[in-house]
Design a protein around this nucleic acid. Structure first.
Length: 340
DNA sequence: CGCTTTTGACCCGCGC
DNA sequence: GCGCGGGTCAAAAGCG
């Protein structure tokens, strides 16, 4: 039987297209702007910080983030959405990496909203047949598989396991390139597991249970979150949007000379702003109790080696649960906490 | 026991 | 209207 291995499918989600050419000065000094709404660097601290030290710190943050985040970037998404909106559905990832867009685009919910219905497709190059291990950090449940006409490879259909999230993706192997996966995302995530982010998955040592998986959102999800929130007319999701906007605004204030943007928003802040209660959050089936650490990154800034390559083929997971507990996301948060 | 995957059936849109 | 193809549903089975 021919079907995609789970590791490939999972890996495909996080793999990103080749980075745009890094031929400008920004590439060497690329960094992320780190906006934290909870515990990291406050605006006051940032302002008081020496620029040299801050740059060093940002550089470290950039590296850390680039290490852990390999999902589509905000520009990836915007570009893809624009492209699909124009009639196609194949993403052109070689978009400008900020050079042609003067102000760093954090994420503009409104912009994404207008394009929400579109899908975007990523072509993912994997290393070998089963080596792809990169993940997008979300938990997907496979709900169908179809053999496609004129294609020897079946197409798998995945849906986000969050009942309130309508994100879907389709994964199929390219017919002409055996090591290329075509991943089509449809709908976007509006959730994030806060506890995972802060507590390191709760289980510890990568042995955490499936429910303790970290779900760091790709930039796509971050952008989409706002859009999805808008689509959803439920109050808590609109509150989520407000939170996201707030975070984005904070990033704008940080600095503007570079293209990188790393944005984190925490549910705590979100609750502070919105005034909703924990009970409210719980009622949202995880959408609101989830944190909204929005990780928004401009492409091509740090080595986006997203190769879904793995030196050793990993055993095929028994489920589609993304093994983020193996990924150092929460470790990085601890590191970042120390840095700041 | 709960969750996920598998897989055949069903539904729906589109072209002829 | 009919057939085809793609997308989804849902029951059954598998797994930890």
């Amino acid at each position: 039987m021919q079907q995609l291995g789970m590791e490939e499918l999972q890996g495909s989600a996080a793999a990103v297209p080749p980075p745009p050419p890094l031929d400008d000065e920004s590439s060497s000094s690329s960094k992320y702007y780190y906006c934290n709404m909870m515990t990291m660097m406050s605006d006051a601290e940032a302002a008081a910080d020496g620029s040299g030290a801050r740059r060093r710190r940002e550089s470290m943050v950039n590296k850390l983030i680039s290490t852990v985040y390999s999902g589509p970037t905000i520009s990836d998404i915007e570009s893809a959405l624009s492209f699909t909106g124009a009639g196609g559905d194949q993403q052109q990832i070689a978009m400008d990496d900020g050079r042609n867009s003067p102000p760093p685009v954090v994420f503009s919910p409104e912009r994404v909203l207008s394009k929400m219905e579109n899908k975007y497709t990523l072509k993912i190059k994997t290393c070998g047949g089963n080596g792809g291990l990169a993940e997008d950090g979300y938990k997907w449940r496979k709900y169908g598989q179809k053999s496609i006409k004129n294609s020897p490879n079946p197409r798998s259909y995945y849906r986000c396991t969050n009942p309130r999230c309508n994100a879907k993706k389709q994964v199929e192997r390219a017919t002409d390139e055996a090591d290329t996966l075509i991943v089509t995302y449809e709908g976007l995530h509006l959730h994030y597991t806060y506890s995972h982010f802060l507590l390191g998955g709760g289980g510890g040592g990568g042995g955490s249970s499936k429910k303790a998986k970290l779900h760091p959102p790709p930039a796509a999800a971050a952008a989409a979150a706002a859009a999805a929130a808008q689509q959803e007319e439920e109050d808590e999701q609109q509150q989520m949007l407000l939170s996201s906007q707030h975070a984005a605004a904070g990033c704008y204030e940080e600095e503007e000379e570079d293209h990188g943007v790393a944005l984190f928003a925490a549910a705590d802040q979100h609750r502070d702003n919105s005034g909703i209660t924990d009970d409210d959050n719980r009622r949202t089936n995880g959408l609101l109790e989830d944190v909204v650490p929005l990780l928004v990154r401009r492409p091509g800034l740090v080595s986006t080696t997203t190769t879904s390559c793995s030196p050793s083929p990993a055993p095929s997971p028994s489920s589609s649960v993304s093994a983020w507990n193996h990924h150092p996301y929460y470790m990085d948060m601890a590191i970042l906490s120390n840095i700041f």
